[in-house]
Amino acid sequence: MSKSPKPAGLQTHHLCLGYDGRDVIADLSLELPVGKVSAILGPNGCGKSTLLHALARLERPRAGRVLLEGDDIHATDTRALARRLAILPQAPLAPPGISVGDLVRRGRAPWRGVLQRFSQADAAACAAALEAVDMTALRDRDLDALSGGQRQRAWIALTLAQTAPFLLLDEPTTWLDLPHQIEILRLLQRLNRTQGVSVVSVLHDLNLAARFCDHLVLFGPHGLVATGTPRAVLSEDNLRTAFGLDARVVACPVSGAPMVCPI
């Protein structure tokens, strides 16, 4: 073991984000643990997506740093970083007429040299990614022909084919109906448990987040409110600070996770 072990996980140090001279997020220092399913929660406009983009080096911080296992991500080569960190943006664009298999293959981009052919390892990673999201049977189907939930699973398969240990997702459940939302969150949980992928997603639904995530980060209109386990974060005081919402928090009769009941 070396003298100073590399800090694990994804950290921010005194991070400031914003546009046009206005800070959306100011002086934020937090850590997203490795090997867990984390969710970023908060009211609209609190900077959740901006933060997620900054964590994936899509947004340059006005000040501060983002560290992945101790390395400043804005100082890391972008392709090398793509092998360690994958992001699924909120509204990725689908090329017209693309099949699920072709879409997933594009997730291998960071692993292939410019003129390198598609290798056996690439094919295996794609097959594993499709298998993990249970889409192997649909690999030759057109993306346009799929249902919303299947389409989202195809996009997740693309990021899985990237085989990065950290996976960031920007509102992966938006536009989906409740059964599909649960399907996606179960999938993310399963990926974490079976493959050890660290998952960070921006979510809207507090109860689903509490049910399927291990670690929550709660933002309010004036910045970070709380981080920690769902039970610690989703307190009645914290909800009032973050959302201005009066609510009772009870234990979910099914799972025992905290459940928010607005008053």
Binding site: T78, A86, P92, L93, P95
Partner: peptide, 17 residues
């Protein structure tokens, strides 16, 4: 070009300049 078709955010996430 194939990556850019997926939208700028995902393309950048896949390591494209």
């Amino acid at each position: 070009l194939g990556l850019l078709q997926l939208g700028p955010a995902l393309a950048a996430g896949l390591g494209l300049h």
